[in-house]
Design a protein around this nucleic acid. Structure first.
Length: 588
RNA sequence: GGUGCGUUAGUUCAGCUGGUUAGAAUGCCGCCCUGUCACGGCGGAGGUCAUGGGUUCGAGUCCCAUACGCACCGCCA
């Protein structure tokens, strides 16, 4: 037997047993005539002891071990004279009788410890070493547990896990496709799925009724800390359902995950918030509800009350109340002003007002507004003595709300209100059907072109399409969109109308989505579904800001795999077989 | 496509208004140490300051460009 036990399981009860362990040398500590070796595997760390007086040769061998050597030892489990309560195996040690070096190791380029000294770049290049670190490994363990619980839950509800192809056709709308040349079909390309959207709808037409898949999706867009070119969705679809059925099914799944993974029992139904309200009160379609600071609209408080052009000319004035922040210094307020004036946020300035202990309000616009207006402000903001009111205004209502959203989140960060162990879940519902694209000069589907409009808004499709709301919903957790979906159109006529509004000609709609429209002619059931971003979902459970550490082999912000050095050029022979010629445009 | 920050020892970083031989910690190597567990003590090796230009008597330090990394905006139905 290669090993009798792992490095994480031996306890006092095992004292006296002769065991064989195998693993990596975490660290050696030489104490003159004694040497301690920490032996590590996936399951834990066990201390090995070598004693000069007992076996000088063996001890000398142990002294030659370097970090990350792979060794096998046979020895006797003994109670330690000096116990280490910080280790699970800290009450025992192995008095080694035989040492077998299975493989030497170069000194690793960074320390393989929970707090590694390695930077991200280096850790990614040697990701196989990084994955030996317990905290990175535990993220993957968490991911495994979550996918297992997802499967357990969905299986218990009668869902079938069905695989869909990775080599499919390119689709317009949405993100850029990753594309794969077809050798057997010269000049033609597959696209990798941005999501199995149309395929799962076809499975509904097939009568599969309840489908799910934990599946890779590919989008060739610029990356972020929470965005990878390939990412994993928990993709789900159901037939003969209304929005309410889907929401309750997947609220159940979220609760199941919180209970089984985090031990958190979420008893209350998740809050529902319309997209309109989310934008109005939080300036975001994914509000972080771990803390308050709800927006208060202040246009009427200030309108025409003074000769202050900034407010008088603004289309929108909104404020948030930061409790207990009246003590913010001038310097802190200047920093907040700089924060909102950053080009990424783009506000022109920040107005603030402190509510003082005597109840009077002292503000940066004192010279314009009298105490009566400021008292009215205090009233509207529901502010108490000691509170700080922060106000943004601007000519574009939505833009100003988004700026105020950034400020709110910044204040949440500064005040430590975005606690990683607190979870605020909600459904954002009633999304707009379309959103105007300046770039395309037309309406674009906000969710996707197959989203069902709200029944009562269907007449508006002809008269005022921009006002149409959709049967679409997002699940939001702590300000992160963890999942989203919609009821789909199953009526070919309505789908046709939708394509027309999106600017497709009949020919083009037929060419791009003919397969779906044709399928719908053969009796498509009403259906709908949603998809969760597994990587984000896991990173929230793990308390991480980046999804990279919940992915075994992630890519960097340029979409490169620095370990494999991919992408890379390919042989001329391969290009030739694929009938491809490279023509790189000169940088301008 | 854009903005910002960064690039100095194996690693993580410091290096001020330009000025002698570029430092610290950690890792690595050697010696000492019989109860360590972030062991400890002593000693040592280790640098094309990302690359290319420029300014200057003199550049790790100032300027420009390029590359790479990270964050963000655009983008991501």
């Amino acid at each position: 037997m290669f090993r009798t036990n792992t490095c994480g399981e031996l306890r006092l009860a095992n004292v006296g047993q002769t065991v064989t362990l195998a693993g990596w040398v975490q660290r050696t500590r030489k104490m003159g005539g004694m040497t301690f070796v920490d032996l590590r595997d996936r399951y834990g760390i066990t201390q090995l002891v070598f004693n000069d007086e007992i076996d000088a040769n063996l001890c000398a061998e142990a002294n030659k071990l370097g970090r990350e050597y792979v060794i096998q030892v046979e020895g006797k489990v003994a109670e330690r004279s000096n116990k280490n309560t910080n280790m699970e195996t800290g009450e025992i040690e192995i008095i080694v009788g035989k040492l077998n070096v299975l493989n030497a190791s170069l000194t690793p380029p960074f320390t393989i410890e929970e707090n590694s000294d390695g930077g991200d770049d280096l850790r990614m290049k040697y990701r196989y070493l990084d994955l030996r670190r317990s905290n990175v490994r535990s993220n993957l363990e968490l991911r495994h547990k979550m996918t297992m619980e997802v499967r357990r839950y969905l299986d218990s509800k009668g869902f079938l896990e069905i695989e869909t192809p990775m080599l499919i056709g390119s689709t317009p709308e949405g993100a850029r496709d990753f594309v794969v040349p077809s050798r057997m079909n010269p000049g033609q390309f597959y696209a990798l799925p941005q999501s199995p959207q149309t395929l799962k709808q076809l499975l509904m037409v097939s009568g599969m009724d309840r489908y799910f898949q934990i599946v890779k999706c590919f989008r060739d867009e610029d990356l972020r800390a929470d965005r990878q070119p390939e990412f994993t969705q928990i993709d789900c679809e159901m037939s003969f359902v209304e929005q309410e059925d889907i929401i309750s099914m997947f609220e159940g799944m979220a609760k199941h995950l919180f209970k089984t993974i985090r031990g958190v029992e979420l008893k209350e139904p998740f809050l529902r918030m319309s997209w309109d309200d989310a934008m109005k009160y939080y300036g975001s379609d994914k509000p972080d509800l771990r803390f308050g600071m709800k927006f208060v609209e202040l246009k009427e408080v200030f309108d025409g009350k003074a000769d202050f052009a900034v407010f008088n000319e603004a289309k929108y004035i909104g404020g948030i109340c930061a409790e207990g922040c009246a003590s913010y210094t001038r310097k802190q307020l200047d920093q907040l002003t700089d924060f909102v004036k950053k080009p990424q946020i783009g506000a022109k300035g920040l107005v603030y007002a402190r509510v003082q202990e005597d109840g009077t309000v002292k503000s940066s616009v004192d010279k314009f507004y009298g105490q009566d207006v400021l008292q009215d402000l205090k009233e509207k903001m529901n502010a108490k003595p000691g509170d700080l009111i922060l106000i943004l205004s601007g000519p574009d209502v939505m833009k100003t709300r988004k700026q105020l959203c950034e400020l709110r989140l910044e204040m949440g960060n500064q005040l430590g209100l975005r606690d990683k162990n607190k979870f605020a879940l909600l459904w954002v519902v009633d999304f707009p059907m379309f959103e105007w694209s300046d770039e395309e000069g037309r309406l674009m589907a906000m969710h996707h072109p197959f989203t069902h409009p709200k029944d009562e808004d269907i007449p508006l499709l002809d008269t005022d399409p921009a006002a149409v709301r959709a049967d679409a919903y997002d699940m939001v957790c702590n300000g992160v969109e963890v999942g989203g979906g919609s009821i789909r159109i199953h009526d070919p006529k309505l789908q046709d109308k939708m394509f027309r509004i999106l600017g497709f000609t009949e020919e083009r709609a037929q060419e791009q989505f003919g397969f779906l429209m044709n399928a719908f002619k053969y009796g498509a059931p009403p259906h709908g579904g949603l998809a969760y971003g597994l990587d984000r979902w896991v990173s929230i459970f793990a308390g991480l800001d980046s999804i990279r550490d919940v992915i075994a082999f992630p890519k960097n912000t340029s979409g490169r795999d620095v370990m494999l050095d991919a992408p890379s050029t390919i042989d001329d022979k391969q290009l030739d077989e694929l009938n491809l010629k490279i023509d790189i445009k000169e940088a301008e």
